[in-house]
């Protein structure tokens, strides 16, 4: 296991391990949720493996108990998934533009995988794309495993520790803090926090991420134009 392959995999295992705890715990919660809606364990497992997007899966689980409405499914998934479009934009310079690994990396571009792979720093003896691909595969496996366990053990596995899912919040806090300490200018970090809080208060829980991202694009457009005119760029 001292080959380059082994090094890539081991680095991916280390980097993705916080997501292991987070995804297995959240996946368990999601599997239990579907179990309580009356679905067999096949549903959370297969939905985790196909849709592979936590917040979308929770909503689709509820929609499956209602009347068939394909247009509604499309709209809700697009609204909830809207933010992922901007993860893709941010990864244009970090992910390959062709080949099968491109599709693997994009299929698995969840919130957590985006933040981990974006922050990833790879030593010279490892291959960045391979490490990113392994992280993506591992995160995927953790999520599907959690959903399966939650759905399968359902009622038997009712020993839930309240508050364990805070691990995901802590992960995002730590990664945002690391980003903040490493960057020279804080304009993006600070406007991200400020605009999101403002939009949450104004637009509410359903649409605040969309409003935030559109405002951030507008903010960048302003800086971009100012820079083009020869001004100072943030």
């Amino acid at each position: 296991m001292n080959s380059k392959r082994g090094r890539n995999f081991r680095l991916a295992l280390t980097r993705s391990s916080p997501v292991f705890f987070g995804y297995v715990i959240l996946g368990l919660g999601y599997g239990l949720y579907m179990h309580n809606l009356g679905f067999s364990f096949w549903y959370p497992t297969l939905m985790a493996a196909t849709i592979y997007g936590g917040s979308v899966e929770f909503i689709i689980a509820t929609l499956l108990t209602q009347h068939f409405n394909p247009v509604n499914v499309l709209l809700i998934t697009a609204v909830v998934g809207f933010r992922q479009f901007f993860y893709g934009i941010s990864m244009l310079t970090k992910y390959p533009h062709r080949g099968w690994r491109k599709f693997l990396l994009l299929f698995g571009l969840t919130d957590e995988t985006f933040v981990i792979n974006y922050s990833l720093q790879v030593p010279d003896d490892c291959d960045e794309t391979s490490v990113q691909a392994w992280i993506t595969i591992l995160d995927y496996a953790y999520w599907v495993l959690g959903a399966f366990l939650g759905g399968f053990f359902g009622a038997t596995f009712n020993v839930q520790v309240k508050g364990l899912d805070f691990v995901m919040t802590a992960l995002f806090i730590v990664l945002a803090l690391e980003q903040f300490m490493q960057e020279k200018r804080h304009i993006s970090s600070l406007s991200g926090v400020a605009i999101t809080i403002g939009c949450l208060l104004v637009f509410g829980k359903t649409y605040f991420l969309i409003a935030t991202l559109l405002l951030l694009v507008a903010e960048y457009y302003y800086f971009y134009r100012r820079h083009q005119k020869g001004g100072d760029r943030a």
Partner: peptide, 20 residues
Amino acid sequence: IKGLGAFLPPAIMGMLVVYC
């Protein structure tokens, strides 16, 4: 687009914290 891709990630990390 390239500049936008460089500008957004720190903001998105902050956004995800607020999202939690």
